[in-house]
Amino acid sequence: GSLMYASIFGNVSAIIQRLYSGTARYHTQMLRVREFIRFHQIPNPLRQRLEEYFQHAWSYTNGIDMNAVLKGFPECLQADICLHLNRSLLQHCKPFRGATKGCLRALAMKFKTTHAPPGDTLVHAGDLLTALYFISRGSIEILRGDVVVAILGKNDIFGEPLNLYARPGKSNGDVRALTYCDLHKIHRDDLLEVLDMYPEFSDHFWSSLEITFNLRDTNMIPGSPGSTELEGGFSRQRKRKLSFRRRTDKDTEQPGEVSALGPGRAGAGPSSRGRPGGPWGESPSSGPSSPESSEDEGPGRSSSPLRLVPFSSPRPPGEPPGGEPLMEDCEKSSDTCNPLSGAFSGVSNIFSFWGDSRGRQYQELPRCPAPTPSLLNIPLSSPGRRPRGDVESRLDALQRQLNRLETRLSADMATVLQLLQRQMTLVPPAYSAVTTPGPGPTSTSPLLPVSPLPTLTLDSLSQVSQFMACEELPPGAPELPQEGPTRRLSLPGQLGALTSQPLHRHGSDPGS
């Protein structure tokens, strides 16, 4: 009898404990919600809404976190579960008819179910419309201010047509639940991603989709105040780019002037030289400038040598048109050559190039014969006009050509200096018209024969001689050997007369 009593008592207590286990969990969670309300000092109306929603959600799901349970299964099984949970929507909604099984599984994985109690606001006026909503159960109302403009029910759709707008718009009203509602919502990016994977279904979906109420604000059109608020930074940046392009296009129409201050000032006329910023005076940081632009901040801005204009002085008759350009485009679109090309026009420029290279940067340069637009006047290309890779490749080509020119210049200078040193070592320090008596009659020769300089066969020296023939050397430049009979510069000019005159010897006659 005691054994029977113990078994009955144990079973009854276990049954009672299981009955009250759900209630215990409910009270535990309710205590957490109330502690949250007390800690954050939530006001009474919002506090009442929180408690009511918790009670309804507990009775609806029995305190089970559906998302946590669903995430515990593998992905393939999750797709089947989501397809079952959203079967009513996918079967009865017209846009989803005719979709393949794979497309429906992908869509079912992207849908999220939302449960809303009465009085809950789903979308506020001015919120971004980031999702498309399908009503599965219940009814909602749409308000503009305090005026109800629409009441939607089961199988209705609200949001915005995503295929017509590249960016999400703003809501033009509040969406509030009238009863307990079940909503299926899919985010904008998720829907577009699935439709991109199934393009054959995309056309059918957009053609058959009928949005019951379009929440997009109709005033959000390009150029409206609301649109400016939504895309303020983007609009200002776009206007700045367009104004920069218009100014650079105007600059290219004036090829007669070359400016070292950047493309923003290349198009300024002579009357605007004294102004601080020219056409860019209202925004000094709008356009890029070269490193020399920092010198323009000092006094005497109108007389600054940074602004270059072609000189009108005539060229000498024998002067060549100019050196070879550094870039391939210089032959086609440049009416002034790079300062480095002028360094190779003569030997005198070679000796004085490194010492006063900055001073020569603004000297007169030889002109190319074609009066085409200036290379320095070409505006900086924006990322939309020329690819970045093209600019980098041009810079690399320019750097390689500069290296080759520097190597060639160093070799030419070394060769010229070597020839000058050899000339100085071969010439005796001094010569006299009267020579010392020699031991015999073989001493009648006034000077030792001097062998002429070897013929220069280097390509670089031939180019130097060509430049010497075309360029007029300055007075202080050293002379180079030329073709024809060679003669030492330090010898007297009348050596031929010395050989014809008898030598005057000093000596005593033994017979006297």
Rank of each mutant, 00 (worst) to 15 (best):
L456T: 13
P439E: 13
S341A: 13
S465E: 12
S290H: 04
S500G: 11
V194F: 03
G223H: 10
E257V: 09
P481Q: 07
P485R: 07
Y431D: 08
M327I: 13
P317T: 11
R188I: 14
R236G: 12
M424D: 07
R360S: 07
P225T: 10
Q418K: 06
R404E: 03
P428W: 09
S304I: 03
L129G: 02
L498E: 10
P429D: 12
Y431N: 13
R307H: 13
N172Q: 09
K250E: 10
R246C: 11
N163E: 06
P161R: 10
S303Y: 04
F205I: 03
S382M: 05
E160V: 03
D203Y: 08
S208Q: 10
F158R: 01
E319L: 04
S445Y: 08
L129C: 06
P291W: 13
P284Y: 12
P481H: 04
P255D: 11
P373S: 08
P437F: 08
A414C: 08
R394H: 08
T228W: 06
T336W: 06
G126Q: 03
L420R: 03
P441Y: 04
S293I: 13
E193F: 10
S139H: 12
S460P: 07
G232K: 09
A166T: 12
Q482G: 11
E210W: 02
P481N: 14
V434R: 12
R505A: 13
D182G: 08
S285G: 13
R400T: 05
F244D: 10
R315I: 15
P305M: 06
G511R: 14
G153T: 09
L419I: 10
L503C: 06
V450W: 11
I142H: 01
F205S: 01
H184F: 07
V391R: 09
E210I: 04
P299S: 12
L215C: 01
P279C: 01
K239T: 06
S227G: 08
H506C: 03
M327N: 06
C337K: 15
T457W: 06
H504T: 06
G511E: 08
Q463D: 08
S393Q: 12
S312Y: 11
F351H: 14
T248E: 10
P288N: 15
S235N: 09
A131Y: 09
G496M: 10
K332C: 07
R176E: 01
G493R: 07
L453A: 12
I221Q: 09
E200C: 04
P316Q: 09
P387W: 13
E257L: 10
E257H: 04
G226C: 07
T228C: 08
R386Q: 13
P492Q: 13
A397E: 05
F344N: 10
T336C: 04
S302W: 10
L183T: 04
D296W: 12
I211P: 03
G226H: 10
S357E: 14
T218F: 11
S334E: 13
P510N: 06
S334L: 07
S374L: 09
P428C: 09
R246F: 08
V175W: 01
R246D: 10
P446Q: 09
P475C: 06
S290D: 11
A469D: 11
R216P: 03
E229P: 13
L132P: 02
G223P: 12
P474W: 04
L261W: 13
